[in-house]
């Protein structure tokens, strides 16, 4: 019984069903995955609507008061506002901070993954298509990037071009593109050895055409399905950089920075400063990973 079922996805993925239907079927098939998709949708919605639904603008220093700092969840502040999830050391409403933080974290995750994906796919494609010296050069740069400490990249960027969410995104792109490139190259190499590409080459089709019209669409799938997981990776990386003090600006905290700030208060009993953003972050990453894992297994891609 187990045998037949486990074979099913492989067979299904190779059948001629339209991609969208396949994905949707995969997702609907499992309650956990369905739950993760719904949760992810809620997170995205909250992030998009944050400025409309947050009780306070946590990025605006004028609306914060340090006299309201570290209040327990449910406390009422001096201006009459109720802090349902408490406040942090600057008197930020945690609920608002989490909504805005979600926005920052998701933005960083999406943009940096998109950037890394674009660079990685291009690099991998070139390496696979041209081989030889081009391949060796690109792959050695990949080796190089994978061995390079990400905190050093972040610090150098901070020192040379200043702080900002955009700078963190650049740092994460620099760290992550190498993984995509490696994956893309492997997939494209397999594809390139297939007969139809050889036929196209023998037929004398121009190389750019072969790369863009055949190689790219047929090998990009395996890279795309891990994107969800890499978005989660990017969000984690941003949180870690913020934890190390080289992440987003302190006045625009992401979920990671909120947790990092809250660590100082765990022992003194002000658990809510680290706990609530922590829960939000872990749920966000979990849901991304669950969806990503499902996608990956549906297409039987191994990383």
């Amino acid at each position: 019984m187990s045998l037949s079922k486990s074979v099913a996805p492989v067979v299904a993925a190779n059948a001629d069903t339209p991609l969208r239907t396949k994905v949707l079927r995969r997702i609907r098939s499992r309650p956990t995955t369905r739950g993760a998709v719904i949760l992810l949708g809620v997170f995205v919605l909250l992030a998009v609507l944050a400025p409309l639904i947050a009780p306070q603008n946590p990025h605006d220093l004028a609306s914060l008061s340090v006299m309201d700092n570290r209040l327990e969840p449910g406390s009422r502040g001096m201006t009459g506002i109720t802090y349902w999830l408490g406040t942090d050391a600057q008197g930020r409403d945690m609920l608002s901070a989490i909504l805005y933080g979600l926005r920052t974290s998701l933005l960083v995750g999406l943009l940096s993954s998109a950037g890394a994906l674009a660079i990685g796919i291009a690099a991998g494609l070139f390496a696979a298509q041209f081989g030889g010296a081009v391949d060796a050069a690109i792959m050695r740069v990949v080796d190089f990037m994978l061995g390079f400490p990400s905190i050093l990249i972040a610090l150098v960027l901070l020192a040379s071009i200043g702080r900002g969410v955009d700078k963190v995104i650049i740092a994460i792109i620099l760290v992550q593109w190498a993984q995509y490139a490696r994956l893309m190259r492997a997939a494209a190499l397999v594809e390139r050895r297939k007969e139809y590409i050889e036929a196209a080459v023998n037929f004398g089709l121009p190389t750019p055409h072969i790369m863009l019209a055949h190689l790219l669409p047929n090998s990009v799938g395996s890279v795309l399905v891990v994107t969800t997981i890499n978005i989660a990776g990017a969000i984690t990386l941003e949180a870690t950089l913020s934890f190390l003090g080289v992440g987003v600006p302190v006045t625009q905290p992401s979920l990671g920075l909120l947790i990092a700030n809250g660590f100082e208060f765990l022992l003194s009993g002000e658990y809510w400063i680290a706990a609530f953003p922590g829960i939000a972050l872990v749920l966000l990453i979990m849901s991304l990973n669950l969806v990503g894992d499902r996608l990956r297994r549906s297409f039987n891609v191994r990383t």
Binding site: L155, L158, G245, P249
Partner: peptide
């Protein structure tokens, strides 16, 4: 209107 730029001491 004050903004904050907090950085590591190395910078």
């Amino acid at each position: 209107r004050a903004d904050v730029d907090a950085m590591a001491r190395a910078i």
